[in-house]
């Protein structure tokens, strides 16, 4: 058996929409963007996925709490997952948003997860402007 490792240290520019979104995370708030119809997209995008139209940048602060739309219980996290113990991946519709954000819910046990439950952002103390600057916890635990 042979072992082979590939590594690429990527550094990406962020642009006018993802840049402010990640800046917001660093500063402790979640930004969405309003499309032409007034719907708030989170994460914010440069183009409307429904129409392909460029979005005039109009940021809206959303959350920090939201509702779980669907979830999956990860029993054995991989080394690439944001948490190193069992957690839920969930699509979370943050308060004020019209779409759901994929993120991790640190619920402790699968029994505490249900669709429709309320969750709230838990911020890291040291934040770098990265999607893992936050994760979510059940609202009653916050």
């Amino acid at each position: 058996m042979t072992t082979h490792t590939i590594e690429f240290p990527y550094t990406r520019t962020l642009g006018p929409v993802i840049g402010p979104f990640l800046t917001g995370l660093r500063d402790g708030h979640v930004l969405g963007v309003r499309n032409r119809d007034g719907r708030v997209l989170v994460p914010p995008l440069e183009w409307d996925p429904a129409t392909g139209e460029a979005i005039d940048v109009d940021f809206v602060e959303v959350g920090p709490a939201g509702t779980v739309e669907t979830w999956a219980w990860v029993t054995e996290p991989t080394r690439k997952h944001p948490l190193d113990h069992p957690f839920a991946f969930a699509l979370i519709r943050l308060d004020g948003a019209d779409t759901a954000l994929l993120h991790a819910v640190d619920a402790g046990s699968m029994d505490r997860m249900r669709t429709g439950m309320r969750v709230v952002a838990r911020w890291k103390d040291e934040r770098a402007g990265h999607i893992t600057d936050l994760s979510f916890v059940p609202e009653e635990a916050a």
Partner: peptide, 13 residues
């Protein structure tokens, strides 16, 4: 690569 890859969003999940 900004919002999903860094979460390790795997196909089974």
């Amino acid at each position: 690569p900004y919002t999903l890859t860094p979460l390790g969003a795997d196909p089974v999940s």
